[in-house]
């Protein structure tokens, strides 16, 4: 693992225009075959959503503003979850530079989840079911996870791979904006930008360089790939 990793795929989330509508959470669940576990289980901390939209209050009454912060796996360059897995079920992708979760290899020690400072990982406590007709919406591109394995945001790696395959078939590079994860696609305010960080001209690279940008818990040395923009409705 490189000491400073630039990364290939990255995301920018503009908190100044995020309305906290949770459309990204729903789209993600649809795309990635995320089971519905019900109110009680979710309240007990077993919701399976790969994104959680954190609502933070800023300022003092009466000048209070809600700031929304969607948090998902930050696809760290130096990911704390990776070295602790005894069976290499979570590991760094050499080509995509994101954190892969190999469901078939996971034995469910849940150590990765404990070591994730972003608390971004979810565990399959049961064999979740999709009663008909919900099973019709299952995405054939994404594995349905069984009980006892860990899962988390993948940056919709199935879409990345498809775009890369198509680009390779046509003998070209993947174009900027060609890959969109489900959350970015669903975002009504276009607050989520996704693209290649290794291309300095891409929209996501430019946004990530913004002065408003900050990365979550960057001081831990995790080198997260998601940049959060915050601090005024001014684009620069």
């Amino acid at each position: 693992m490189a000491a400073e990793e630039k990364g290939k795929w990255g995301m920018v989330i503009d908190q100044d225009i995020c309305t906290g509508c949770n459309a990204c959470v729903v789209a993600c669940a649809m795309e990635n075959n995320i089971p519905f576990v019900g109110e009680d289980e979710t309240a007990y901390g077993r919701g399976m959503h790969w994104i959680r939209v954190e609502r933070q209050w800023e300022g003092h009454f009466p000048e209070v503003a809600a700031v929304y912060q969607p948090v998902m796996c930050q696809q760290c360059g130096r990911a704390p979850c990776e070295p602790v897995c005894p069976v290499f079920a979570t590991l760094h992708s050499e080509t995509e530079h994101i954190n892969l979760q190999v469901y078939n290899r996971c034995i469910g020690t849940r150590y990765c989840a404990n070591n994730c400072p972003y608390v971004a990982r979810r565990f399959n406590w049961f064999d979740y079911e999709w009663p008909a007709p919900l099973d019709n919406h299952l995405n054939p591109d994404v594995t349905v996870r069984g009980r006892g394995v860990m899962e988390k945001c993948t940056f919709c790696v199935q879409r990345i791979k498809r775009a890369e395959d198509e680009a390779a078939a046509e003998g070209r590079e993947v174009r900027d904006g060609e890959v969109q994860p489900a959350c970015a696609q669903a975002c009504p305010t276009d607050a989520i930008i996704f693209g290649r960080l290794d291309d300095p001209e891409s929209r996501v690279s430019k946004a990530a360089r913004s002065k408003r940008g900050e990365r979550l818990l960057e001081d831990l040395g995790t080198q997260p790939k998601v940049t959060y923009l915050k601090g005024g409705a001014r684009y620069d």
């Binding site: 901390g45 565990f123 406590w125 049961f126 009980r147 006892g148």
Partner: peptide
């Protein structure tokens, strides 16, 4: 499934 135990997020 492990769910019959009381663990959750964040107490894994």
């Amino acid at each position: 499934g492990m769910g019959y135990a009381g663990m959750n997020v964040p107490v894994f």
